[in-house]
């Protein structure tokens, strides 16, 4: 896929199919360790632990409609291209956790891409579920928690396209700030600002 955010969308959809109520997505970028890690955790029905042995094989799937499941195979291929890999922790009744890690500066590492669009589409398509998105770049962090949003928005439903559009715009702004390299001035701004703490 062209962007890692599309892989994330895909794996989260797996969690939704597994009956999850809350799905957390964590993206951690470390320039010092040259590593990008994506962790997606759901509280759905999980799978028997033995199933994880061949999960990157497209012919191993929990789907019943077809004998092929492409999502994790493609993610594994993307990670392995970048000196990384995927790991899946799961247990029946205990949910599933999918971790993918990449060498961040690898030339073949796809960009993370439009996470605001991925989160927006997940929220609008599943307003009854909750999503928590945490994105860390070195010391900086962005958090989106639909549980908090729903509490704050008091009655404005997250199933309304206009609400989700505004949400996506705010998120894009915040993520752009996160992505920019910290110069001395920016750091000073954070110290002086302290608006969010």
């Amino acid at each position: 896929m062209r962007e890692l955010s599309l892989h994330i969308l895909d794996v989260v959809e797996n969690g939704i199919t597994a009956g999850a109520h809350c799905i957390s997505i964590q993206v951690e970028e470390s320039t010092a360790r040259d590593r990008l890690q994506i962790t997606i955790r759901d509280d759905g029905r999980g799978m028997p632990a033995e199933k994880t042995r061949n999960l990157s094989d497209p012919f191993v799937t929990t789907r019943t409609t077809r004998r092929v499941g492409l999502g994790l195979s493609l993610l594994a291929a993307a990670a392995r291209r970048c000196e990384g890999d995927i790991r899946v922790n799961t247990e029946t009744g205990r949910g599933t956790e999918v971790t993918a890690f990449f060498r961040r500066s690898h030339i073949d590492r796809a960009p993370l891409g439009d996470m605001a669009a991925t989160m927006g589409m997940l929220i609008i398509g599943n307003p009854h579920l909750d999503f928590v998105y945490v994105h860390r770049v070195d010391e900086r962090e962005f958090v989106l928690d639909t549980r908090e949003l729903k509490a704050e928005l008091e009655g404005l439903s997250l199933s309304e396209p206009v609400v989700v559009q505004h949400l996506m715009e705010s998120m894009r702004r915040s993520l752009n700030e996160l992505a920019s390299d910290p110069g001395k001035e920016k750091f000073k701004e954070d110290i002086d600002g302290q608006a969010d703490n």
Binding site: R140, V143, L153, L167, M171, A195, D196
Partner: peptide
Amino acid sequence: MAKLTIDDL
């Protein structure tokens, strides 16, 4: 910690 601020909401 960057979040959607109260102003955004």
